[in-house]
């Protein structure tokens, strides 16, 4: 996530609301990178739900 957002200030508390770099475009880049590196497929609805760090982790748990 740090790589995608280009900032070191990513923590478990980060969310689309409190992280300036986590905009809608980079959100998709994040989804795309996760799909590629973990070899999973995320549906658009699932991508839309991953609005903060813990939700990303939760979503990934269902995929792996």
């Amino acid at each position: 996530m740090r790589e995608v957002f280009g900032t070191e200030e990513v923590t478990t508390a980060s969310s689309q609301k409190n992280c300036e770099q986590w905009d809608s475009l980079r959100h998709l880049t994040l989804a795309s990178e996760l799909e590629d590196s973990l070899n999973i497929e995320l549906e658009p609805e699932e991508i839309a739900e991953m609005t903060d760090f813990s939700k990303v982790i939760e979503m990934l748990k269902t995929k792996l």
């Binding site: 809608s24 998709l28 795309s32 549906e43 658009p44 991508i47």
Partner: peptide, 8 residues
């Protein structure tokens, strides 16, 4: 999928 979500 990405096209329709983000116009790319």
């Amino acid at each position: 999928k990405y096209y329709l979500m983000s116009q790319t």
